[in-house]
Amino acid sequence: MSIHSRRYDIDALRFLVFSLLIAYHTAMLYLDGAAFHMKSTYLTETLNFPMVFINRWRMEIVFLISGVSCAMMTQASRGAFLRRRLARLLLPLLFGVLLVVPVQPYCEGVSNGLVEPGYGQFLLHYFGGYAWPAGAFTGWKTSFTWNHLWYLVYLLLYTLVLAALQPLLAQARPLFTRLRGWRLLILPALPTLAATVFLKLRYPENHALLKDWYAHAIYFTMYLYGWWLGNDKGVWQELARLRWHALLLAPCAFAAYLGFDLVYSENLLTWASAGSWPMRDLYMWLAICAILGWSHTLLNRPFSWLPWARQAVFPWYILHQSAIVLLAFWLVPLRLGPVLEPLLILAGTVALCWLGTSLLISKVSWLRPCFGLPALPRQAVAADTALPAN
């Protein structure tokens, strides 16, 4: 199989990882002590360890998968590559920021008692540079926010950097592709450890693009790893061979990381940081290696649900957090209980994403590019036939 043919495991893993965001962001409503746009009255600390277990690699693997996808496009000229990526990312970003995201600051501000009810009036103020009360909602200082769509902003930036530096990065590719055995499981964690040591405390992650140097160092490194991985068929066979090693070592690194972090917070520079930070980054990379190795072994086949998943993943990503926040805005005041409430929010979010994508976005030709999907071919629009695979 050519390394640039359809990678079923990457398609499947992309959908599964982005689907995890729905569960993760729903859980954020209930995690005590964690900032989110809405909070339930049923807060708990029992979610802390599972959330940390996921959080240490969830966005890193998203950027890595994006890098793998880009590797399959960079065989064309840099101009063609950039046009394709900008067309896929820029319009959904603008559409999402202008029409999908605003419901989140509205719900957040009304729930905080700092925004007057009335969505139409809110939008006039929101786009008019209104001076919001302090802490009205996330992004109140600029009267504008991209919230969860920060990923698309960062991905656009990294795509431009990759296109500009592609010849230089291609020359450095052998340094990565020669990694095999224990070197593959350990050495790629060293650059992220350097970023943690030198940038984490000085530039805390803010998703605001500017002065977010720690996040950029981590996420661009993972994006670059994905680009290198996507250009190396042999490394996938090695990841599959090492999948048991990574699966067994990752929990050990996580346990060691938690042990040091419980002594003192990882966000403070103490003697425990000398153990916490290396174990944090090692766990992150081992977890990703385990996921990639097992995915390549189990998911690299043409499942019947993959064409649908390829169509759904981008619209679901754009819609999901606004759906979660809106449903929480409606349901949290009803005090339905610590079981029924999260189940309704989770099920409702899935239903809104499913219905919005299947009944509207995928059917309307001009809407499809706004959510990262190719426009329907004319014959498909006329015949109203099944949608083409992405």
Rank of each mutant, 00 (worst) to 15 (best):
Y158A: 03
Q166T: 04
T44N: 10
G181S: 14
N390E: 05
G234D: 15
W277T: 02
L210T: 14
L29S: 00
H37E: 06
L86Q: 11
F371N: 02
F198P: 03
L376R: 02
E45L: 13
P102V: 05
L169Y: 12
V381A: 10
L160E: 07
V339F: 07
P338C: 08
P342V: 14
G230C: 08
A240N: 10
H37R: 07
L21R: 00
P92Y: 06
Y203D: 06
Y203V: 01
V235Y: 01
R88Y: 04
L239T: 10
A375N: 04
G109Y: 02
R335K: 12
V381R: 05
I288C: 05
A80I: 06
I345W: 01
R88M: 11
P188R: 05
A208C: 10
V153H: 13
P388V: 15
G79M: 08
G128F: 03
L331S: 03
L331V: 03
P278I: 12
C107G: 02
R14D: 09
M284Y: 01
M28T: 05
S295C: 11
A382W: 05
L336C: 04
E266A: 12
S40K: 00
W277K: 13
R78P: 03
A386M: 11
L82C: 12
R335Q: 15
F95R: 07
P307F: 12
L165G: 04
W140N: 11
T196M: 09
A386P: 13
Y223R: 08
H320L: 05
F137A: 07
S2D: 15
L123W: 05
Y257G: 13
L248T: 15
V381D: 10
E238Q: 14
V110N: 11
T357Y: 14
Q379H: 14
L319D: 07
L262C: 11
L352K: 01
A131E: 07
Y257E: 08
L31N: 00
F49L: 15
L262A: 08
D32S: 14
F303Y: 12
L269I: 13
A328R: 00
V339Y: 06
P105I: 09
M73E: 04
W294H: 13
